[in-house]
Amino acid sequence: MIEPGLTSFAAIILAGGQATRLGGADKASIEVHGRTLLEHALDAVIDASEVVVVGHSVPTERPVTFVVEDPQYGGPVAGLLTGRDALLRSFPTLAVLAVDMPFLTAATLRRLQDAAVDHDGAVLADPDGRRQLAFVVASAALDRVRPDHEAQHGHALWPMLDQLDVVVVPAHAREHRDVDTWTDLRDLADD
């Protein structure tokens, strides 16, 4: 359960996918409005005490830990848990986000943290109510539902989180938008 007034948290940025609908392009390096998607994601987690990027190492202005998920391309659960295991310290709360959401902000994450008080976590939802890969979760709660290492590859994220008390938080404006295709990228560039 997430406690009120909690200020120290760690962030895990998931950047290790195959981006098949983008022809295998490195999402972290794609630019939107003159900045890479990774730079946008790092801005969103500016309040985090520690940041792990699950993906290949690239230069950043902020000190972060890079790690490749085990198994590689094992999906968001493998990435999330590999990122959690790479943290140098323990944190009561984790913020987790996909690298391809350039309109997420630190305010978005604060709103998720506020909504998660007295729950196991909170997840951002688009205007149609679909959960997005942007959420906060209590570390202890995540540990309760963590699959064995062998089961992490291809393990579905939402059924795992559905075992927890996670509040759905509606997105404001375009913060739920992501880049899955070149058309998405073109449309974001027009925003």
Rank of each mutant, 00 (worst) to 15 (best):
R89L: 10
T108K: 01
D70N: 12
R62H: 11
P102K: 00
V96M: 09
A98N: 15
R111Y: 02
E69I: 00
P63E: 15
E69C: 01
D114C: 08
T65A: 03
M101D: 05
F103W: 10
V64G: 06
L112K: 10
L81W: 14
R62A: 06
L97R: 12
V117M: 08
L87H: 08
D118Q: 12
R84W: 10
V67A: 13
T65Q: 10
F66G: 08
V68L: 10
A98G: 15
M101K: 14
L97D: 04
R84K: 14
T108A: 01
V67I: 13
T108W: 04
L97S: 14
V117D: 06
L81C: 09
L97N: 06
R89N: 11
V99N: 07
H119D: 11
R89M: 11
A106D: 15
L80Y: 04
L81A: 05
G79H: 05
P92T: 02
A86L: 05
D100V: 00
Q113C: 08
G79N: 05
P76Y: 10
A106Q: 09
G83E: 08
V96C: 08
P102N: 02
E69A: 13
P71S: 03
P92C: 01
V96A: 10
R62Q: 13
L94P: 06
R89Y: 09
F103G: 04
D70Y: 11
